[in-house]
Simulated scan of single mutants.
Amino acid sequence: MWWLTRVRSHSMTPTLTDGQFVLTRPLRPTHAVGRGDLVVLDSPVEPDQHVVKRVVGLPGEKVTFDAGQVSIDGRPLPEPYASRSVFRGNYQVPAGEYLVLGDNRDVSSDSRSWSRPYVPRASLRGRLVRRGAVSSRLPATWSGRAN
């Protein structure tokens, strides 16, 4: 059954605004999760709370942040929806887990700031159903793998 999720922060601005309600569909274990999906997940910092984030790193990928540019396995990731950030760091996403970020990078509490940065597949509860949100996956021409 689908439900309404209320966005409760500015971490997804400008894609989503604080207080906005967005239709959400369940993310069953058999459903694929793709880069760019906007997902509802169990909050890793607030018990019994959910947060909305964007899937950026998929299982097995190396995600690098270098002063505003995100790269996946050495290849720059186009992110027209995200604000630039001064953050730098490297993450190796384990099998069965994901790296998630807010679009408003320098104000978002997300994988980069959580004590356990990777989100298990079982913690992903739903995918937002919103024009421009679900369809904001990268074009098929972006393979995500270094040449």
Rank of each mutant, 00 (worst) to 15 (best):
A95D: 15
M12P: 02
L16H: 02
R145L: 14
P14H: 01
D106F: 06
A82Q: 04
S108K: 06
G57V: 01
R121L: 08
V107D: 13
S43N: 13
A67T: 12
V129A: 12
F65N: 10
S143W: 01
W2H: 08
K62Q: 12
F87A: 14
G19T: 01
V51T: 07
D106P: 14
V107H: 10
V52N: 08
E61V: 07
D48S: 08
V55R: 04
W142Q: 04
K53N: 00
R88K: 10
L138C: 04
Q49M: 04
H10I: 10
V7P: 00
R8H: 03
F65A: 15
V45S: 12
V63P: 00
D73N: 15
R127Y: 07
D103V: 02
L4P: 01
L58S: 04
P76E: 15
G34D: 11
L99A: 05
P76S: 15
A133F: 01
Y118W: 09
L16S: 00
V93D: 03
V119S: 10
V55W: 07
A67N: 14
T64I: 07
V63E: 06
Y81S: 11
G132N: 11
L23I: 10
Y98E: 03
Y91D: 00
V70H: 06
W114G: 08
L124R: 05
V70F: 11
E97R: 08
L58H: 00
F21D: 03
L38A: 06
R112I: 14
A95M: 08
S111W: 09
V56C: 08
V134P: 01
S113F: 05
A133S: 12
V33I: 14
S109R: 15
V63G: 06
S135W: 13
P47C: 03
L4R: 07
Y91C: 00
P139M: 10
A146H: 00
V107R: 12
D18M: 01
V33M: 09
N90D: 15
V129T: 00
E46F: 09
L99G: 03
V56K: 02
N104I: 10
V39W: 01
E61D: 04
W142C: 10
L38V: 10
R131C: 09
S109T: 12
P80D: 09
G144M: 13
R8L: 10
D37F: 05
V70T: 14
K62D: 05
L77A: 08
D110T: 06
L41W: 02
A32G: 06
N90Y: 05
P26M: 10
N90W: 06
S83H: 11
L58T: 00
L99F: 11
L27P: 01
P47G: 06
S109F: 09
D48H: 11
V119M: 15
S113M: 07
L128A: 11
P80R: 11
A140V: 10
R112M: 12
P47N: 05
A133P: 00
V86C: 07
S113T: 08
Q69N: 12
V40M: 05
S111E: 09
G60C: 03
T141A: 15
R125M: 11
S85R: 07
V51N: 07
G57A: 08
Y98K: 04
H10E: 14
Q69D: 14
L124G: 08
R137K: 06
Y81T: 13
I72H: 05
L101T: 03
T15F: 01
A82C: 12
R25S: 12
T13D: 14
G57Q: 02
L124D: 05
R105V: 08
P47L: 05
A82L: 11
G19R: 03
I72D: 06
G74L: 13
P47Y: 05
